[in-house]
């Protein structure tokens, strides 16, 4: 039961990864790619980590830490990358 659930979470995560990463190829703007990357990639990674958590609940503090750092860092990183790539000529 738990095994099937974690497998389905893995496959959802991999589908999300594929969805977020495939737009990288192709000639779209940086912001468009960043959007799909930050939303779909983070969701995919989080679903994979939850799948791992179901499989080995013993390591929960570590995996919860991974979930939190994924959620926070990827959001901040998306913001920073968008700011830096669009303000290329600006001062500060």
């Amino acid at each position: 039961m738990i095994n099937a659930l974690s497998y389905s979470l893995f496959s959802i995560g991999i589908v999300f990864w594929l969805w977020g990463t495939l737009p990288l190829i192709g000639h779209r703007s940086v912001l468009y790619k960043l959007h799909s990357l930050s939303v779909a990639d983070t969701l995919g990674s989080m679903s994979i980590v939850v799948g791992l958590l179901l499989r080995i609940p013993r390591e929960w503090p570590l995996l919860i830490l991974a979930l939190i750092s994924l959620a926070i860092w990827n959001t901040v990183l998306g913001y920073v990358l968008a700011y830096c790539s669009s303000h290329g000529g600006g001062d500060v």
Partner: peptide, 8 residues
């Protein structure tokens, strides 16, 4: 674009 790939 390379930076995006690096982030990924």
């Amino acid at each position: 674009q390379k930076m995006l790939a690096f982030a990924s």
